[in-house]
Amino acid sequence: MTKHRIGVVGAGAIGQLIFQQLSTSTSPLPNKLSVQLICRESESQQQTLFFTNINHAVQHKMITVLGQHTPKIKKLDVIIVCVKAYQVDDLIDALLPTLAQNCHIILLHNGMGPHISLARKLSDYPQMGLSLATTSQGALRSAKWQITHTGIGQTTLGHYSGLALKQPLKEAILEAIPNASWHDHILSALWQKLVINCAINPLTAFYQCKNGQLANDEYKAEITQIITECIIVAKADNVELDDLACHELVYQVITLTSNNLSSMYQDIYHQRQTEIDYISGYIVARGTHHNINVPANTLNLQRIKSLETKYQQ
C-alpha cells in the first residue's frame, strides 16, 4: 500500500492540531498517510506531545519533530505550512531547495498576501503546485508541546496555482481533517475569512475585549464600515462578496466565539508581533493598488501598529 507522505510545518497550536488530526485519524484513506511534524529549528528532536481533544480527553505520545535540515523532508509529497503569515516568506525560502521537485505546498494561516509572492517563486518549480486553506477550528497552546482543541470548525482547501494536488492526497487530507471540504474558488473563501478577521481581530485587540463584546451596538457602525470597505476592495480584485452574507458571517462568529480572545488580542497581550499587515494591512494595500480609500481598515492598521510600537521600544 502506497504511503502518502505529509509534513506539517509549524508547531504552533494549529500546526499541532492538524498534525494530530492527520496522524490519528481512523478513517480508511488516511491509514495510508505518513505524517511528520516539522519545527522551524534546524535539527530534529524527540518530544512528547500532549493533546486534549474536544471531549477533554488527554492524550500524549512521543514523536520525532523534524528539523528543517533533515533529509527526510526531501521525501515529502505535501507540506502544510501552519506558521504566522509574516513567517511564510523566510520559511519557504529556506525549505524550497530541500523539497522534492514535485512536492505540493498548502498554506494555512490567518490573513492574505504570502500566496502572491509564493506563486511567483514557484514559477521556477514547474512540477510543484500551491493550494490555500483556511480553518475556523479553535486550538490553544498552553505550553510549547501541549495544546487543547477548543472549538469545532470548518476547514476549507482549494487550488491556487501550479500543478493540482493529486486526487488521492486530496481525498486523504479531506478524510482526516474533521469538517474539511474542497472549494473550487478558494480565494472567495479566503476573502470571507479575511472579512471576519478584519472585523473582529483588530477591534478586540484595540478595545481589549472578548469577541462577544463586539455584538454591542456601540461597535455596529465601525464593523459595518470595515465590512463595506472589504467588499469594495474584493470586487476590485474580481471577487464578489455578498454584503448581507458577510454581515451575517461576522456576527455569527462573534456569537459562536463570544468567550474567546482573538489571536490578535492575545498577541498584543503577550507583546508579540501580530498579523495585522496581512489582515487590515492587506485591505489597505489592495485598496491603494486600486486607488480605493479604506479609512476604517487604515485606522485599525494604525491602531495595532501603534500598540506594537509601544512594546517594541
Rank of each mutant, 00 (worst) to 15 (best):
K3I: 09
K3M: 11
H4L: 15
H4D: 12
R5K: 09
G10L: 00
G10N: 00
A11L: 13
G12R: 06
G12P: 04
L17M: 12
Q20R: 12
T24C: 05
T26P: 13
T26Q: 15
P28L: 14
S34M: 11
Q36F: 11
C39E: 15
E43R: 14
E43G: 11
Q46T: 14
Q46H: 14
Q46K: 14
A57Y: 10
A57P: 05
V58R: 07
Q59K: 12
Q59R: 11
K61L: 13
T64M: 03
G67V: 07
Q68C: 09
H69I: 08
K74I: 11
K74H: 14
I79P: 00
K84R: 04
A85D: 04
Y86G: 02
L91N: 06
A94E: 15
L95F: 01
L96Q: 00
L107N: 04
L108F: 02
L108G: 05
H109T: 05
M112N: 06
G113H: 01
H115P: 06
I116G: 10
L118G: 00
L118K: 02
R120I: 13
L122K: 01
L122I: 05
A133H: 01
A133F: 01
T134L: 08
G138E: 03
L140E: 12
T150A: 08
Q154H: 15
Q154G: 12
T155W: 03
G158P: 02
H159T: 08
H159D: 10
Y160K: 01
Y160V: 03
S161E: 11
A164F: 10
L165C: 04
K170Q: 10
E171Y: 06
E171A: 10
E171F: 08
L174F: 06
A180H: 05
A180I: 06
W182Y: 12
H183N: 15
D184P: 11
H185F: 15
I186G: 07
I186H: 06
S188H: 15
A189I: 14
K193Q: 07
V195L: 03
I196C: 08
A199P: 02
I200S: 01
L203Y: 12
L203H: 09
T204N: 05
A205K: 00
A205D: 05
A205M: 01
Y207S: 09
K210C: 13
G212S: 08
N216H: 12
K220E: 13
I223D: 01
T224H: 13
Q225G: 07
Q225N: 09
T228E: 13
C230Y: 02
I232Y: 06
I232T: 08
V239D: 02
L241F: 04
D243A: 13
L244Q: 15
A245Q: 15
H247W: 03
E248F: 06
E248K: 12
Q252Y: 13
Q252C: 13
I254C: 02
T257Q: 00
S258W: 11
N260T: 04
L261W: 09
S262G: 03
Q266V: 06
Q266N: 08
D267R: 03
Y269A: 10
Q271R: 06
S280P: 07
G287I: 00
G287N: 00
H289S: 11
H289G: 09
H290E: 08
A296M: 08
L301M: 04
Q302R: 11
Q302N: 14
Q302H: 11
Q302L: 12
Q302G: 11
L307I: 07
Q313I: 13
Q313V: 15
Q313D: 13
